[in-house]
Design a protein around this nucleic acid. Structure first.
Length: 462
RNA sequence: UCCCCAUUAGCUCAGUCGGUAGAGCAGGUGACUGUUAAUCACCUUGUCCUUGGUUCGAGUCCGAGAUGGGGAGCCA
């Protein structure tokens, strides 16, 4: 009878000494001698994998000597304590079946590769220790997002990926069209989008916020969690053209409630990573960023600093530091300012609240001072802005005035304005970049290394 | 999009003053009964990113382009 394969993580955690098991995985390391071979195989369930001991009495021992790193094997053998120093357990093989050979051209070697090189072989990098740990964390963390909001009784809403609303400004939207780009139908000298698939210009969503607000005004507390697309020509380690965003929205809530939720959420995710992804987090602490565990532990425990925008400006001015971009009330905070605040002044996560209205979006609620809006950013060391949120303008007249000031057409957003027409109420929400959270938790420096198959300008391979 | 840096063997990199290229790892062959990035011996591998130019002679100097990286802007 064919025995079921046991996942290596499960085997190491709950295996019985002296019992027989079947494990399958990919060869990470081979150490051969005439009479004995040591083969480390990994099946993706944990960082370490398990050492397989093969002795020369195996029928295919000679053949095993010719396999390369990366080969797929199924091993049947006995779980025993390892006399060697590097591992607690090992499997003494009864039989080894070579499932898929890998020859010497296999691009992953038994050594450290640069992340740049591994990006060029993104189809194989999940088989490395680092990317194994990252994508296990990513999977777990996605589940933690749902668990958190489920515990808080938030409704999960799937906002559309294809949309016709282009509220945050044209140019950053990926066009969705079935028209022939080389020969589009014309209306005068311009493309006639009335003849396009949806009868109008459409594109990939840049945010589910506006639709999220509509659901918040029916269900109270809601969140979205899905892919988001930006066609901006951003070439940084923190931007991607396709990324995942978590956007909660709460009715009958103000900016302070919003910050409370954001803080609770971020701390929950930190605690979750420490408790539920212990081995992978320890791996990051060892190999990616020394001191990571301590840093995350502090975030999970300490209260976040809250600072008014005006206060932040004063602190920056008084810092005595010369910035490339001069600081004054009214300017947007540049990366150098944000990093100074979170890294030098605070030394941890910090909310900046109530920004000048002129540097923020139309839907943010105008404060009583008439010059700031109820906006907030959460800044964290290294990554910078991880959350952007606001209390939304619930007063129809103010919203229409603001749209007029910014030259935003009301007609395409008639449905959004309707929400302020009937049963409007104070509400607030934020967007958390899922990949930025992953960077923060893993210590990885580049967003392209926390996305399975990243899309950035000029890169759409795999 | 702007500014800076890089591009040499499959990978990571060295290459002096301008004189036609080298190491470690990987790979191959052999040795080895407990290895841990196994070890030891021997061996193989090059469009020096491309393209113009300077020069008797360019991996090396100059121009242009491509690709990658870092920083900035935009943001999550």
């Amino acid at each position: 009878m064919k025995r079921m394969r046991t996942r290596i993580k499960e085997l190491i955690a709950n295996g019985t000494k002296g019992s027989d098991y079947v494990v399958s995985g990919w060869v990470r390391s081979l150490r051969l001698s005439k009479e004995i071979a040591f083969i480390v195989i990994n099946d993706g369930s944990d960082v370490d994998g398990i050492q397989v001991v093969a002795e020369s009495d195996l029928a295919n021992f000679e053949q095993i000597g010719r396999i390369g790193t990366g080969s797929a094997l199924t091993v049947e053998g006995r779980l025993l304590e390892s006399p060697g120093a590097g591992q607690k357990w090992e499997i003494h093989s009864i039989s080894i079946t070579i499932i898929g050979m890998a020859d010497g051209n296999y691009p992953l070697q038994k050594k450290r590769h640069s992340f740049e090189y591994l990006r060029s072989i993104a189809h194989l990098r999940p088989r490395t220790n680092t990317f194994g740990a990252i994508f296990r964390l990513r999977s777990k963390l996605a589940q933690a997002v749902h668990r958190f909001f489920s515990e808080q009784n938030f409704l999960y809403v799937q906002t559309p990926i294809i949309t016709a609303s282009d509220c945050e400004g044209a140019g950053e939207l990926f066009r969705v069209t079935t028209l022939d780009a080389s020969n589009p139908p014309l209306l005068g000298c311009r493309t006639d989008f009335n003849q396009d698939f949806f009868g109008q210009k459409s594109g990939l969503t840049v945010s589910g916020q506006l639709e999220g607000e509509l659901f918040a005004l029916a269900f109270g507390d809601i969140y979205t969690f899905g892919p988001t697309f930006r066609a901006e020509n951003s070439n940084t380690a923190r931007h991607a053209s396709e990324f995942w965003m978590i956007e909660p929205e709460m009715a009958f809530s103000d900016l302070a409630d919003d910050a409370d939720l954001a803080e609770k959420f971020v701390r929950y995710l930190c605690r979750f990573a420490l408790e539920e992804c212990t081995d992978d987090m320890a791996f990051f602490d060892r190999h990616i960023e020394s001191g990571l565990l301590e840093r995350i532990r502090r975030v999970a425990e300490a209260d976040f600093v809250r600072m008014e925008y005006g206060e932040a400006i004063e602190l920056l001015k008084k810092s005595g530091t010369t910035f490339t971009y001069p600081v004054d009330w009214g300017v947007d905070l540049q990366t150098e300012h944000e990093r100074y605040i979170t890294e030098q002044i605070v030394g941890g996560p910090a909310f900046i609240l109530n920004y000048p209205k002129n540097i923020k979006a139309f839907y943010m609620r105008l404060n009583d001072d008439d010059r700031t809006v109820a906006a907030m950013d959460l800044l964290v060391p290294k990554v910078g802005e991880i959350i952007g949120g606001s209390q939304r303008e619930e007063r129809l007249d103010r919203l229409e005035l603001r749209m007029a000031e910014l030259g935003i057409a009301q007609e395409p957003l008639w449905w959004y304005l309707d929400s302020r027409r009937w049963g409007s109420c104070p509400h607030a929400g934020f967007g958390l970049g899922f990949e930025r959270m992953l960077m923060y938790l893993s210590g990885m420096d580049n967003i392209r290394d926390v996305i399975p198959f990243p899309r950035t300008p000029r890169h759409c391979e795999f």
